[in-house]
């Protein structure tokens, strides 16, 4: 048991770094994912994760595989797509889902073209799928800073975020914060995707955001417990995924996402609000 669960982390520095990075990512990305899901923006998160690619690729093109330029590039690209898609949705008849899809498809194509201009297919794989087992100090610091910013913004904007999801028109009638909240939240999404892309890549960083949140939805009916549970599921997936990757020699990023996918599937089936529970519980009812 010790050999299986503890030894990989005790023996190898790169495993401890990977664990620290993945746990911090769970702590920051999963709460953001819960709100993303409750705002019915899960697919927007997916789109945004592709949108940061050309920025990261431009950083890579100019400076090589260095975290700071790739991060800044990713943030800029994410911000352009978020603001651009939002502006098209507000100023024209097109809804945000369509404008977001248009922006991210263009971004993804530009990103892949940029990487292929200079890099090999190995580089492309790195940008698309990350390397959680090669997290350096810079990457860990980046994740830690994003974690601090995310917790701070969520604590400050919590009430506005809840109100904006539950009854946006009500929030608009009592406060001018609705627009700012939306923008700040999109900012958090981009920030967390950028934090995750070094470890999980642009294609999978959204997985640790959405899957734990989607799984937690089946177990609870309040927002705060849902956020806590999503973090726990994220942490369990991180540990499980890294162990799976170590013992079965699988790529680490996909192993983490697969682990949270397994927990999601179990939640769909077994959660109190899942698919099986209504069939398994007794078919009796109270008189009043």
């Amino acid at each position: 048991m010790h050999d299986f669960l503890i030894a990989p982390f005790a023996e190898f520095d790169f495993m401890r770094r990977a664990l620290l990075g993945a746990l911090m990512l769970s702590l920051t990305a999963c709460p953001v994912g819960v709100f993303l899901m409750l705002r019915r923006m899960s697919l927007t998160g997916e789109a945004m994760s592709h949108a940061i690619l050309p920025g990261a690729a431009a950083g890579f093109l100019i400076y090589g595989l260095k975290i700071l330029p790739m991060t800044i590039g990713g943030l800029i690209a994410g911000a352009i797509v978020a603001v651009g898609a939002g502006a098209v949705a507000r100023l024209t008849v097109q809804k945000e889902d369509a404008s977001m899809a248009a922006f991210y498809l263009i971004s993804l194509a530009v990103g892949v073209v940029l990487v292929s201009l200079r890099g090999s297919s190995v580089d492309l794989m790195h940008v698309l799928f990350g390397t959680v087992l090669a997290l350096n100090d810079d990457a860990l610091w980046l994740i830690m800073i994003v974690l601090a910013v995310t917790v701070l913004v969520l604590v400050i904007l919590w009430r506005a975020l809840v109100a904006e999801c539950l009854d946006p028109l009500f929030l608009r009638s009592v406060s001018k914060l609705g627009g700012i909240t939306h923008q700040a939240f999109l900012g958090l999404v981009v920030l967390n995707l950028v934090a995750g892309f070094q470890a999980l890549g642009t294609l999978l960083s959204v997985g640790l955001m959405i899957l734990p949140a989607a799984g937690a939805r089946f177990w609870t009916t309040s927002v705060l417990p849902m956020v806590g549970l999503a973090v726990v599921i994220g942490a369990m997936s991180s540990v499980g995924g890294l162990l799976l990757s170590y013992h079965a020699s699988l790529p680490s990023g996909p192993a983490i996402i697969l682990s949270s996918g397994a927990i999601y599937a179990a939640s769909v089936l077994l959660g109190p609000r899942g698919a099986l529970m209504p069939l398994l519980t007794r078919r009796t009812h109270r008189t009043g």
């Binding site: 009430r159 809840v162 009592v174 609870t220 009916t221 927002v223």
Partner: peptide, 26 residues
């Protein structure tokens, strides 16, 4: 129709939104 009824909130949470007028964001 403008309210998201699928949002995980209890009656108390919905009614508490009204406190915004006095307590604001923080």
């Amino acid at each position: 129709s403008e309210l998201d009824r699928s949002f995980p909130a209890r009656v108390r949470d919905l009614v508490s939104l009204g406190l915004w007028s006095q307590r604001g964001l923080l």
